[in-house]
Structure formats: C-alpha cells, structure tokens
Design a binder for these strands. Sequence first.
DNA 1: GGTCATGTTAATCC
DNA 2: AGGATTAACATGAC
Length: 271
Amino acid sequence: MPELPEVETITKQLDKSVSGKKINEAEIFVPKIVKNSKKEFEKIIFDAKIKKIGRRAKLAIFELNNGWSLLIHLKLTGQLIFNGEKNKHTAVIFNFSDGTRLIFNDLRKFGYIKPIKTEDLNDFFEKEKIGPEPLSEKFALADFKNILQKRPKAKIKQFLMDPKSIAGIGNIYADEILFASKIHPLRRNQDLSTEEIKNIFKNIKKILAKAIELRGTSVENYVDAKGQKGEFEKKLKVYGREGEKCVKCGGEVKRIKIGGRSAHFCPSCQK
DNA sequence: GGTCATGTTAATCC
DNA sequence: AGGATTAACATGAC
Ligand SMILES: [Zn+2]
C-alpha cells in the first residue's frame, strides 16, 4: 500500500516523465474514482498541460496550466504507471498528445481523482487538518513534541498512523519506526520520555528517507511509475513478519490489533 | 464462503 | 469542541 515513500517515488518519477505533456483525453472506466461528473472533469482537463507533479501527505498533486490541479489518492491498491498496459483493474487512462499515456489502476477502487483549483490547495490541506510533512526541514523535534502533547492519551502507533497528526505514515512505516525506536506500539504519548521521543523523531526521518531511496515497499500490489517493485521490502524488520524471528534478538515477532489495524512488533526489543 | 487486510472518513459516544 | 472508537468501503487471498 502506498504510503509517503511510495507516493514520493511515483510523483518524482512522473514529474520527470509526464510534466510538460498535454492531455488529449481521459478514458474513465470506473466513474466513482473521479469526484466530478464526466462532463465537468472533461472540461477541466481539456487541452490542459501538466505543469508539474508533486506530493503532499499521501496525495499526488498534478498541477495543470489552467488553474486546476488534480489530487490523486492511491489508497490501498492504486497504481500510476507511465505507458502501462490497460488491465481489468484500470480505472482511468490519461492519453497525452504525443501518444504516451498514464494508467491509473485500482483493484479495490478506494482511490480517487479530485480536481481542485490550484489557488485553493493550501486551504484544502488546512481544512482537512492534514498533519505536517515528516521529512520537511520545518518539521523539527520541538514540533513533534508539541503535537504529541496535544494528544497525551493516544497510543503511539495510532498516533503515528493518523494523517491528522503526521502526514504520510501508514501501517508499514509506523511499525518499522517503532521497532527501530524500541518502543512498544501500545505506549501512550504521555508516557514517552524525552529520550524516547527524540529517538522516534529521528527514526521517522531516517526510515522514510531510506524507503524513498529504495523506491518504497512492495506489499499488496505496489509498483512505482515504471511498473517496478520497491526494494524496501527486504529491509522490513517487523511488518508482515509475524511468527518469524526478530532480526535483533531472535525472539518471535508478534502481531496484535490496535484500533482495528494490525501492529507487528518484538515484545522483547520494544518496551 | 467467512475472515482478513488496508487508508481514510463518517458516525457515534463521551 | 474535539478526541477516541468503530464501521464502512472493495475485492483478492486464504
Ligand atoms: Zn527482538
């Protein structure tokens, strides 16, 4: 499932391969993916050029040259593949004027494309109360401490995964960050020591950066914009390793449910 | 064929 | 008011 490193990988690749191209048409195979009527959507993209492609939280942002931007969320199983082949999960195809195309596949159909005026982008993220970008230089230890204090009772695992506390961290990276930080996922924010907070903060930056370097993690059906799997999967220490040996202590990796989501951790390494 | 997995959000309770 | 909790969404894998 695409989290921050996966969406960052895809948007960086697409910014290189697709920016500057003119959209001829969009073929819509799954109407609910597009948050407008077909007519409205066609009007927005008609003759539009893609100026640049960026990311905020887990959202890809396609900025067009006509005042509109397209927000694209891949949710669990979305794929954006440049010059990909249509398959039975293809929801939308953008055809460009030079004969190339961009394929949006979505097996579970949770993803969406939402046009928004470019000038309204900032308001949108503010209104939705999306948390800070963890890799931004503006996101400092003091900020992290601050937002932890605002929700003292929250369990750290759920807190890390909540897009309204910090943007872009999902189940995989939350589990990996807590393992690297030796913190039990059920710990509450108010019980974390200054040293532990510092450690979690450091690992948020470190693990997300490393995952981007390796073009993300392929679980479920994630591929990047070139259709290739990510390499961070090989670096996973706890996620998806229930019952296997902890790489650090040899103990057994456990899986529990926290807020309806699975949390993987090593009970002897994480306290 | 029932359960599980997943990100986000709506609904509900406190 | 807004945090916590839970269900809902879709569908393939088991
Ligand atoms: Zn261990």
